[in-house]
Design a binder for these strands. Structure first.
Length: 291
DNA sequence: GGGTACCTGAAA
DNA sequence: TTTCAGGTACCC
C-alpha cells in the first residue's frame, strides 16, 4: 500500500488521536513481529507521531498520564521522559486502523498487533505480513538515508548531486530509498509521466531542463496525492478505514491500454527490475534502443 | 546493479 | 494453475 502520500495521510489522522494519550495495553499477536519491541509499552504515553520516510513513528514517553500535553511546538522529546521511538513500516499491505469504543464492528481482517487506549483502539492489520515494527533508543537512528523530497530544503541542485553520473534507469533510481525516501512504484511512474520523461532514460543523462521538470514533478505529484489522501487499489485505507482518492487522478499507473489523459494514445506497461512501469510512448521520448 | 525471497490472497 | 501486488533485505 504505502508510499509517502499514504503514510503521510495516516500520520496526519493518527497524530490528533494519539498524541498525549496513554497506552493502556499494547499486544503483539503475530510471531513475525515478536521481539521487535523489547519492552512493555503498557502505561506509557505517546508524545509525538510523525513520518520518517515511509515509516510511521510513535515517540514513546515514560509518563503516560493524561493532561500532560506539551505546548505546541514544544515536543516532549525535549524532556527526559522519552523512552524511545517505535517505527512502524507498513510495507505492502499494512494498515493502522482506529476505532472508537462505540464503533460498530468492522471487518478488518486479522489483527497482528493492537494498541488499546481509554478512548479507542488502534489495530495493525497486514495481509502479507511484510510490515515491521522497530524500536529505536536514539532519535538519530530513525533517520532514513535518503532525503525527504517534501522538505523545503530539497532543491534542484540536491537532486542533481544525488543523481550524479548514475547510469541506472531513472524510474528504478527514483525508488531508491537511500537517495530520496518515499517514492515507490506508483509514484515513480506518475512523477515521470507528469515530467514527460521516459522511465528508461539513464538518470545521469538528464539535462538541466529535464532535472528541473523532474524536481517540480516529484513535489507536485506527492503533494497532490496527499491532498487526495493517497491512492487505493485493493488494500490502502486510512486510519478510519476510508480509501484514498488519488487513484481517480492517476495518469498512467495501472492504466495499461487505457487512453493517455493528455494525448489519447494507449498507455504502455513494461517491466523494470521485475516491476511494472507505466508510461505513454507518445508523451515521452524513449532513449535509443528501448521498447 | 539485477534476481530472488519473504507472505498471502485476488484475479486471470 | 499461474501471475500479480503499493517494499525492501540479501545474494552474487
Amino acid at each position: 500500500m504505502p508510499e509517502l502520500p499514504e503514510v503521510e495521510t495516516v500520520v496526519r489522522q493518527l497524530a490528533p488521536l494519539l498524541v498525549d494519550r496513554r497506552i493502556r495495553r499494547f499486544e503483539i499477536r503475530d510471531r513475525l513481529l515478536l521481539g521487535s519491541v523489547p519492552l512493555s509499552l503498557d502505561g506509557t504515553g505517546i508524545s509525538a507521531v510523525f513520518r520518517e520516510g515511509k515509516q510511521i513513528v510513535f515517540e514513546i514517553a515514560a509518563d503516560g498520564s493524561p493532561g500532560r500535553r506539551a505546548a505546541a511546538g514544544n515536543p516532549v522529546s525535549k524532556n527526559q521522559s522519552v523512552l524511545g521511538w517505535l517505527a512502524i513500516h507498513l510495507r505492502m499491505t499494512g494498515r493502522l486502523l482506529w476505532s472508537f469504543p462505540n464503533d460498530s464492528a468492522q471487518s478488518r481482517g486479522k489483527t497482528r498487533a493492537e494498541f488499546a487506549f481509554e478512548h479507542g483502539r488502534l489495530c495493525f492489520v497486514d495481509t502479507r505480513r511484510f510490515g515491521t515494527f522497530a524500536w529505536h533508543e536514539e532519535r538519530s537512528s530513525l533517520r532514513s538515508a535518503g532525503v525527504d523530497p517534501l522538505r523545503a530544503s530539497f532543491r534542484i541542485r540536491n537532486l542533481r548531486e544525488l543523481i550524479g553520473s548514475s547510469t541506472q534507469e531513472i524510474k528504478p533510481w527514483l525508488m531508491r530509498q537511500d537517495k530520496i525516501c518515499g517514492i515507490g512504484n506508483i509514484y515513480a511512474s506518475e512523477i515521470l509521466a507528469e515530467a514527460g520523461l521516459s522511465p528508461f532514460l539513464r538518470a545521469g543523462s538528464l539535462d538541466r531542463k529535464q532535472l528541473t521538470r523532474l524536481h517540480k514533478s516529484i513535489r507536485k505529484v506527492l503533494r497532490d496525492a496527499i491532498k487526495h489522501c493517497g491512492t487505493t487499489f485493493s488494500d490502502f485505507q486510512d486510519a478510519r478505514g476510508v480509501k484514498g482518492k488519488y487513484q481517480d487522478y492517476l495518469r498512467v499507473y495501472d492504466r495499461e491500454n487505457m487512453p493517455c489523459r493528455a494525448c489519447g494514445h494507449g498507455i504502455t506497461r513494461s517491466l523494470q527490475g521485475g516491476r511494472s512501469t507505466y508510461f505513454c510512448e507518445q508523451c515521452t521520448t524513449l532513449p535509443p534502443g528501448n521498447p
